[in-house]
Design a protein around this nucleic acid. Structure first.
Lengths: 346, 346
DNA sequence: TGAATTTCCGTGCACGGTAACGGAAATTTT
DNA sequence: AAAATTTCCGTTACCGTGCACGGAAATTCA
């Protein structure tokens, strides 16, 4: 019942606590025989180290690095960055901090460069939202070689030995998006708006979302024409023109979806040309939520990115401080459906 | 930059750490002059106690009491009870545990009795899901008198000095429920199924939900007939008969809602008499989720009760260990909309 | 004024682990 | 076989607080 301490196993094995400590942290200088004896009685007595005593004696601050795409205010990655603060508060009593590193999500070079900055900071763990398959692999290998645990959020790339993943299922989210878009009745024609810049190099989740979207259409609403329109997020005027041209050509379209967080880009146009259109997009950016509350956007599929970074950081903290591994490696999270009547408390 | 310790302020004030410690925990035996000197230099140096050292030296486990309605497997309060485990893991490093006390949600006597059991256990904090306005007030006053902080979940009753509240907005949840039930088109006739036992003494959230439901109807779907049907949760056969009788009398009804977690009770009937009926209910009980995935239930409004207890416990832990108060007292949480396409990862 | 209290405060050990230091024992080298 | 290493281990001084104990100083009592 009473707590087993390092002294108890020292006494039991006839060794000193110095030796016991050495085996606990395997920092060598212990004979195989002693090592075995200590390990045995640790198991026998069910010894668990006292966290406070340990932290007090070390008194050293470890840090967890956060590797995220750089973000402008009002964009998706800003939401994730906000999760850092909450997580920080939670892990502070564990003598841990976080530090954020950013990269340009459209440049592999910048990602590589950020990776070396992360390594230079000598982190105790890394949380990353990866964008580049190959570069991420290389980085993951380096982390593994150095024995630095890491977790993934948002995008699950196939990298060796990640501790955990947190994100929504990309394929299913596209499927859900289609379901929300179609609503009850069958639909003849829908528009999927896309981002120009993504045309060349599509991110992994975007591709999967599209395929989920398409599959829903095939299964539940076949014979529907799916039209695409590419817009430039940097150029609102051109976006307006593009939409104008589109609706001149296809005036019957009453269903619009976007498979990323930028749905707010078409809101100004829609509000200048009111019509009874179902509009579905992703993520709880302020601009999206506002349009949702006004009724311009019908539904949003949201994923609590703050929660994702929080959880990822927490799992690393458990690993680093307690040597505890998460129960599940892949944690697919709930996709929140937001409509105007439940957006307020989000 | 380097940490200020108790010794630093001892040195600065020319007193000993023993004295400093006495003022820190105001356990008396200190002259006013010394007290003032210590307080001043604490402020001056910005001293913050070292949590580990403190916990290590005390080595005493405080406990947070959880006061919840007793629960059968597969009922709502079981979900909340599950949150206890998660919270427990989170606060363990803070030398805190939780302990659950249950009461019969239909008996004020049993609630009172549970309250005295809680007090006898001498908890450092209390989380409760209250059902009885008056008894809860009395209990809250007692807690306040003893200086025991407490938080509320689920139902926000007006009690003095609670630390925090976590739950969904009851009125709005009824409103949302109606919105999900009606869907796109106007509806002529809906059925709201209710629980017999609740007829006499309706809980606070149920009343508010009903009023939100009604208001939505008035505002968005006026002229709709709202029919009620009472069923007995203990008697499936009677439930079936009642539904049978109802649909014989009103065969046109194609919309059913229930404003509590028991929607699964009518699922067997619905599956024996297939028809294209929209069915909306509350909470992610396994039975509800299963019916949702099968398509019998159209939508569920869920509220993550585990999260609510987790958060409430966390806020108490911060209060107890760090003397930190939550930013917001009333934390209304997001109402999750579950449909068959996003139920899987919930 | 001396004795008896009371008030106030310093000392020192305990909490459980960490890691530097130095030395004995075992092993290798010359 | 003595010297030089290497391997292995015990000792010890912390880390920052909590708290019991005892004693000096101030106050009250006789």
């Amino acid at each position: 019942m009473e707590k087993i301490t390092i002294n108890d196993i020292a006494r039991l094995t006839g060794l000193s606590k110095g030796t016991v400590d050495r085996v606990l942290h395997n920092r060598g200088e212990v004979s195989k025989k002693s090592y075995q004896k200590v390990m045995d009685s640790i198991k026998e007595l069910g010894y668990e180290p006292n966290l406070y005593a340990s932290l007090l004696a070390r008194a050293e601050q470890k840090t967890i690095a956060l590797l995220l795409p750089a973000h402008q205010p009002g964009t998706y990655w800003e939401l994730a960055a906000k999760g850092e603060a909450k997580a920080q508060a939670a892990i502070k009593p564990l003598s841990l901090t976080t530090r954020q590193f950013n990269y340009n999500q459209y440049s592999a070079d910048s990602f590589r460069e950020a990776c070396t900055r992360v390594l230079e900071s000598n982190p105790a763990g890394v949380v990353m939202a990866p964008m580049f398959q190959y570069e991420t692999q290389v980085f993951a290998q380096e982390l593994q070689a150095r024995g630095i645990p890491y977790s993934l959020i948002d995008t699950k790339l196939e990298t060796p030995g990640y501790l955990s993943f947190y994100g929504i299922p990309a394929y299913k989210s596209g499927y859900l998006c289609a379901a929300m878009l179609i609503g009850e009745g069958p639909v003849k024609e829908v528009l999927v708006v896309r981002i120009m810049r993504d045309k060349g190099r599509q991110s992994d989740p975007t591709v999967l979302r599209r395929s989920g979207f398409m599959d829903y259409m095939l299964e539940h609403n076949p014979g529907c024409t799916i039209r695409s329109l590419f817009i430039d997020p940097e150029d609102p005027a051109a976006t307006d023109d593009a939409l104008d041209a589109f609706f001149t050509e296809f005036p019957g379209v009453r269903h619009i979806a976007m498979l990323n967080s930028r749905i707010h880009l078409i809101v100004p146009f829609l509000e200048r040309h009111p019509a009874d259109i179902r509009v579905v997009g992703f993520d709880n950016l302020d601009a999206n939520l506002d349009a949702l509350k006004r009724g311009t956007i019908t539904a949003l599929i949201a994923q609590r990115p703050e929660e994702q970074v929080h959880q990822a950081i927490q799992s690393l903290a458990n690993r680093i401080v307690f040597q505890r591994f998460p129960e599940k490696t892949d944690n697919y999270q709930h996709m929140d459906i937001l409509i105007r009547f439940n957006a307020e408390d989000y």
